[in-house]
Design a protein around this nucleic acid. Sequence first.
DNA 1: GGGCCGCGTTGACCTCGATCAAACGGCATG
DNA 2: CATGCCGTTTGATCGAGGTCAACGCGGCCC
Lengths: 240, 240
Amino acid sequence: MRKDIHTDGIPVLCVSCEARHRGVCGALEPEQLVSLAKSSHKQKAQSGTELLGDAERIDTYANVLSGVVKLTKTLSDGRQQIVGLQFAPDFLGRPFKTESDLNAEAATDVSLCAFPKAAVERMMQASPELERRLYRQALDELDEARDWMVTLGRKTAAEKIASFLLMIARNIDPTADPDRDSAAFDLPLTRADIADFLGLTIETVSRQLTRLRADKVISIENNRHIVVPSLSRLEARAGN
Amino acid sequence: MRKDIHTDGIPVLCVSCEARHRGVCGALEPEQLVSLAKSSHKQKAQSGTELLGDAERIDTYANVLSGVVKLTKTLSDGRQQIVGLQFAPDFLGRPFKTESDLNAEAATDVSLCAFPKAAVERMMQASPELERRLYRQALDELDEARDWMVTLGRKTAAEKIASFLLMIARNIDPTADPDRDSAAFDLPLTRADIADFLGLTIETVSRQLTRLRADKVISIENNRHIVVPSLSRLEARAGN
DNA sequence: GGGCCGCGTTGACCTCGATCAAACGGCATG
DNA sequence: CATGCCGTTTGATCGAGGTCAACGCGGCCC
């Protein structure tokens, strides 16, 4: 499934795009890939780095190769809301707009494959297949955003936490068997980030996590590592 | 601005698409329009009609010609959340998926211009310009969804109501001067719908509306007609 | 007319999650 | 080793918004 295409030793679009029908590889002919590759550069950013500021000009697109990127919006008085999480191999960018209205920040250490905006847009003109791929991702992100609207608007704190853990379990390791009933993973977000994602406070997040632990639905090691013995038992608490 | 193209007397894609860079007209050559027109049919639905059920097969797309369509998601215990509102001239449909995971319902009396899914998808293959138009709308809807996530997750009930009224004022009449400071309109939603949109209860919606009225920020006639003497004063309460 | 229904408002009360405050553990630094 | 910082947990209290209940108003049907 993995398509590591190399040009002059540079790995290009080098993620398993097929996993969730995302990313841009697979949409291009080899010679197009090589052409795009020459304008790309690999990029590392450690946790907390701002990748794109609000009201900043967008001049690059990027493929997330590893790690998690959080998209946030902030009200004038500082209240913050995470409006999206991008996992590998998601594509980071906003076509048809030159200015961003949100912040992109590395939630964990992140590696990216960045392209000049112009190169991607030229390639999009040339390859309807690429444009379609990006269109699909936009629609998938829209579906996800709408699912989260339900969580934000109508679920209790306990249900929000359960839903969040399920979402992470599903996204953090796209190669895992989708039919498995147990999972173990490191949380890519701090309690503060989780709170900003779910529209809660850190205290409530902490309390609900300890409650899930007390009820033996999860176990927690080192504050970050989560073990879920039964995903279905967790799902029963997500309120869907 | 208005492009009413008629074929055999049938008005086709007959809305002013340019208004908000939405809809599909303007993206097609006249002969393509005519071809699509032949497969289309105008459709009226009165308030409350379900246009598309959850888990139903999607076999038509439609352009909203007038009225408002609400997109909802429902949890198993009946809690409901509105995840999108479609105004004229928005396009209603979900490419690349055969099954819906949400409900579409006429919030007001609605008129639609419906197309068979297959016809639109054939046209999309033929016209990259049309696909791009739809891609743009998907990105716009994604931006809107993310804005609402902030509202749902981080704003108070009072701020939610103010934000909602502003959104309606901006969308209900796309021809209005964007720089005006006053507005008057009929609410396209019942109190229950507004509650489902904002993640509140009808009682809270009612209380916050009467509070805005008491503070002379709005006036209300017949429960539905809203007059906003100063949009900027309303905006000051939206908490952005 | 009277009764009913759908929609909206208002009041009294309660609960969930926010707020305020304190303390803990890990880790880096002097 | 003490010190401080950061992320997290836990406890005590408060309040915004939910819940429950009553009532008002207009339209519709008998």
